[in-house]
């Protein structure tokens, strides 16, 4: 039997159905905890804060002093500078570092570890829970920003969204948000397994993501923001000192920009699976 056939046989013999059921069970528990606990209120506040501002703008701008083009640029700026750079980053940091560290703080991780569940399955279930929580929250927030921004233009706004480029832009924003949640989520999950205090490395990641535009193209390719920016439907020119030193890199194809964060997330998750295998619970140390 060839090695490939042996591999296929091994794969087909794995209890996939059981693992899928276990992941679904973990997912249910985690989604209930993530969405319904009062601890998660700050994520909603963070995500929906710009929506409240846009609502205020819609009320104040009843006279229609701004154009759709201006507001599209404003929305693009908010997406790139608020959501992508800070909102989703800190939201994912809070959600994904809590997945395992939170169980340690609440002294409940041993229940999972004592159950007949493979640790890799547990990790994937929790990661899926985190991705769904973060993606749904931020996608809803961005959709509400989008809806409020164009609703106050009345017919013209409706035309822009449904018969113009609006819907495509919204779908692009939602896709980028999902990719950002997957990419940053995997990184923060791995950090939370690697060290007790993942804040310092998280800040280094933030610095890396902020300052990679001034680095050579090769270094930029190791940043999640590099791929996500390429997917943004409306480009917003950088301002300030950073813009002076920005290295304009060759754009990558849409396929590569989508695959980039996914490959990074997969690689980090493989590492996280190894880390969770070695994880020892010490409730005293937290």
């Amino acid at each position: 039997m060839t090695s490939f056939a042996q591999f296929r046989k091994n794969v087909s013999e794995q209890p996939w159905e059981l693992w899928a059921r276990q992941i679904a069970a973990i997912l249910r528990m985690d989604l209930r905890k993530n969405f319904l606990s009062s601890r998660g209120i700050w994520v909603y506040l963070l995500a929906f804060a710009p929506a409240s501002l846009i609502f205020l703008h819609a009320i104040l701008d009843r006279a229609g002093s701004t154009s759709i083009r201006t507001d599209t640029e404003v929305l693009a700026g908010i997406f790139q500078f608020f959501y992508l750079r800070f909102g989703i980053f800190f939201g994912c940091m809070g959600i994904f570092t809590w997945l395992f560290r939170g169980e340690i703080i609440e002294k409940s991780l041993h229940y999972y570890f004592l159950a007949p569940v493979k640790r890799e399955v547990l990790l994937l279930g929790k990661f899926a829970g985190g991705v769904i929580t973060a993606t749904v929250t931020f996608c809803m927030a961005i959709t509400s920003c989008f809806a409020i921004m164009y609703a106050h233009f009345g017919q013209a706004g409706q035309y822009y969204v449904f018969d113009g480029p609006g819907m495509g832009q919204l779908l692009a924003y939602l896709g980028i948000t999902a990719l950002a949640c997957i990419g940053y989520g995997a990184v923060f999950l791995a950090f939370s397994l690697l060290m007790k205090n993942p804040i310092v490395p998280a800040l280094l990641v933030l610095a890396w993501e902020t300052f990679t535009p001034v680095l050579p193209t090769l270094a930029q390719r190791f940043s999640i923001a590099y791929y996500l920016k390429q997917l943004c439907p409306v480009s917003v020119p950088a301002e300030g000192l950073l813009a002076l030193f920005t290295v304009v890199s060759e754009p990558v194809s849409t396929f590569a920009a989508v695959i980039g964060p996914l490959v990074l997330a997969a690689a980090v998750l493989v590492l996280a699976c190894k880390l969770v295998h070695r994880l020892e619970i010490s409730y005293v140390a937290e």
């Binding site: 963070l46 501002l53 404003v74 608020f82 909102g87 804040i199």
Partner: peptide, 23 residues
């Protein structure tokens, strides 16, 4: 607690910039 402190100093400017841009 550490994360919230950093978030306060990073998200504050981002939110402020959003207020300035939108309004």
């Amino acid at each position: 607690a550490s994360a919230s402190m950093f978030a306060f100093f990073f998200i504050g400017p981002a939110f402020g910039a959003a207020v300035n841009t939108i309004l």
